[in-house]
Nucleic acid binder design. Structure first.
Lengths: 106, 106
DNA sequence: TCCATATTTCCACATTTCTCGAATCATCGG
DNA sequence: CCGATGATTCGAGAAATGTGGAAATATGGA
């Protein structure tokens, strides 16, 4: 993963609505969630949601597929793994930062 | 780590110069690097560097200490661990994203 | 075809972020 | 005290980002 791509991924996640949306998509799993459902759950107008989802898609963190009238977004776990890998390699001194990251809620 | 703090940390890293600076600081280890050295290495004017370092410090990702006329910045590994922990817990579906993240260069 | 639903695109506007020279502040040596 | 060095703060302008209504684009059902 190139630095340029890393920046885009970090930028994509560095926003309240987008981080929340991505979390919901991760929870939803392969099945994903429709754009409208995300907009509803996050209480964001459809056009704004669309804008944010486009950013996540541009960063490669989510994929989209049409299903009838809905467009379903899903988290791209591989992309997230790539980001985590880069951060571990380049920003944690090689030490396995998240290996024992159980204290996330502490 | 609260979502608000996570956003600030991600925002801090989501910028070319700041990501580069943080990587240098991680490489430098405990010893850290002076603000001027970072500005030199990254070819950024001192005032701009200062601005970016302030953002990293605000996000809690770096610490600073004065050493004679220089101000030395160091990466805060614990803070980075906290961020990685949050991402692993909330954005990777619990799966240990970076556990086998050796393919970071792939 | 016509209508309703789901989403995106377009657009203007507000806000935030980035940039960097100049001025200021802090520390050291003489 | 003075001058030099290292860094931050200030201020103004440029650029990028976020917001949300209105219009446009798909899809499906009657």
């Amino acid at each position: 993963m190139q630095p340029d791509h890393v920046i885009r991924a970090l930028s994509a996640l560095a926003q309240e609505h987008r981080l929340a949306a991505f979390r919901l998509l991760v929870q939803a799993g392969e099945q994903g969630l429709a754009a409208g459902v995300l907009a509803d759950r996050l209480d964001v107008p459809p056009s704004s949601m669309s804008f944010h989802l486009a950013q996540l898609a541009n960063a490669g963190l989510v994929t989209q597929r049409r299903e009838s009238r809905s467009i379903i977004y899903s988290a791209d776990y591989a992309a997230m793994n790539g980001l985590m890998g880069y951060l571990t390699e380049n920003c944690c001194g090689g030490v396995p930062c998240a290996a024992d990251a159980g204290e996330a809620t502490a």
